[in-house]
Computed example of a mutant assay.
Amino acid sequence: MKKMIAGVFGAGRIGKFHVENLLQYDNVEVKTICDVQLDHLIEWNKDKNIFLTKNEDDIFDDKEINAIFIFSSTDQHISQLIKATQNVDYIFMEKPISKSIDATLEAWEIVKSKSKTIQLGFNRRFDPNFKKVKEARVKETIGVPHVLKITSRDPEPPGIDYVKVSGGIFMDMAIHDFDMSRYIVGSDVEEVFVMGDALVNPKIKEAGDIDTAIIQLKFANNALGVIDISREAVYGYDQRLELFGSKGAIIADNKVETSTKLLTKDCSCVDNPLHFFIERYIDAYKNEYETFIEAFMNNDNVICSFEDGLKAELIAEACKKSYETKTVVKVRGI
C-alpha cells in the first residue's frame, strides 16, 4: 500500500497540533521534524520517536520523504517551498504564502514552471457548514448569488509585539475571509472598499495597524459582498456567514458547546460561540488533512492551491491600499 512519508517544517503550537492529527492516519508516517528550536519538542516527542533536527537538509536530502508540510513562520515559507518543489511532488503549506505580495508573485513564477501539487492551509473551506453553503450555490438551490455577508471576529486581540510582525490585519486575519469569499461565491473579487480603525486597542494603531474593519467586495460575476472583522468579540470566536441569492438564502451560524436554550422570565439564554479557533474548526482541519492525503494517494489535484493563496493575498493588498487611500481599489490580476 502506498504510504506518505512526511517531513515537517515548524513545530510550534499549530505545527504540533497538525503533527498530532497526521499521526492518526495509518497511511502517514511523520519521519522528520525540522525546527529552529527543539527543546520544547523533547518531552512531547518521547512517545512519537520522530527524528528532530535544526538542519533543513535532513528533510530535503532524505529520498524516503515524499511529502512536505510547512508549518514554520511565514518568513520561512517561500524558501522552504521552493526547495520542497525540487524534492517532492506534494506539499502542504500554512497560509499566508508570505507577507510580501512581490515575493509571492516571484514564487508563483517558479511554482508555475514545476508540476507540483501544493495545498494551502485555508482550513475554513473544509468546514462542513461552509461547504454546505458552497454546495447550495453550486446546485443553484438559492439561485444566482447576489450578496455574501461574512462576520469574522476573534475572541481576543493579539499582543502588540505580534501585531508589529503580523503583516497587518488584512494579510494576517482577513486572508481567510478573502479565500472564503472566492470559494463561496465562485468568482474572483474585482474591487474592494475598506473602512477601519483601532477601536479595540489604540496601541494597535500606534503599531501601524487596525483592529476593526468593514470590507466591501465587488465580484467578477456582479455579486456583492461585505466582511466585518474585529480582533475582539468578548463573547467568543464569532464566525458567521450568509449567502443571499435570487431564490433564497443560506446561513452558517456559530458553533456552540451545546444546543441547549435556557428560558426564564428574565432571559432566553444560549451558549456563547466556542472560544478558540482550533475548537471551532476541528472538523475542518480533519477534512483538510484527509483531502490532501487522498490527493496524494490518488496522484490527484487539491482544491485549495498556491494560486488560491496568491489571489487571497492580492485581495489583502487591495484592501490595505483602499484603507490607506479611502478609495475603491481594483484587485490586481495574475
Rank of each mutant, 00 (worst) to 15 (best):
M171Y: 05
N272H: 08
S166H: 00
Y289V: 15
R124E: 08
S115C: 12
V270T: 15
K320Y: 06
M171G: 07
P202T: 05
G167S: 03
G333Q: 10
G248F: 02
K265R: 12
T260V: 10
I250E: 00
S79C: 07
E191V: 07
V138I: 09
I278K: 09
G10F: 02
T212Q: 12
V329Q: 07
Y281H: 09
W44H: 07
E313I: 10
R280T: 13
T260P: 02
K265N: 06
R153D: 11
N301M: 09
D253P: 04
F193H: 09
K131S: 10
R125C: 10
F51Y: 12
M1H: 14
V165H: 01
G186I: 03
R240G: 02
F277W: 06
N254E: 08
I101L: 04
F296S: 11
Y285W: 13
D211C: 09
F122E: 08
V226C: 08
A249N: 11
I251Y: 09
Q24H: 06
G168F: 00
Q216I: 12
N254M: 13
W44S: 12
T74W: 06
A174D: 01
G121S: 13
K48V: 07
K311G: 00
D62M: 01
L22M: 11
S115K: 14
Q24L: 14
L148Y: 01
D197T: 07
V111E: 01
G186F: 06
L81I: 10
M171K: 08
W108M: 13
K320D: 04
L120N: 15
F92I: 14
F51C: 15
K203L: 01
K95W: 07
D197E: 12
K205T: 00
V28Q: 06
Y237E: 03
T212F: 08
D75V: 12
I282P: 01
T260Q: 08
C269S: 15
C34S: 14
A284S: 11
P145M: 01
I33F: 05
A312E: 10
K99G: 05
H146F: 03
K205S: 02
Q239Y: 05
L22P: 09
I227Y: 04
A11I: 08
N21E: 11
G121T: 13
V331L: 10
D61Y: 03
V163R: 01
A252N: 02
A316I: 12
M93Q: 09
P155R: 07
K54R: 14
D211H: 11
T85Y: 00
V138H: 06
Y162C: 03
S79W: 00
K48W: 03
V256C: 02
G168E: 00
D266V: 08
I70V: 11
N301W: 05
I33V: 13
A207D: 06
S181T: 09
R13Q: 05
V147G: 01
E324M: 07
I82R: 03
A318H: 02
G159K: 02
D283I: 06
I68M: 07
H146V: 06
L217G: 02
A223S: 13
R153H: 05
I78P: 10
V302L: 04
V329A: 00
K116V: 13
E279P: 02
K54I: 15
S246V: 04
T53E: 10
E191W: 05
I303Y: 01
Y25G: 12
A174F: 00
D266T: 08
I293G: 11
K46T: 13
F178T: 01
S98Q: 01
S115N: 15
A136Q: 02
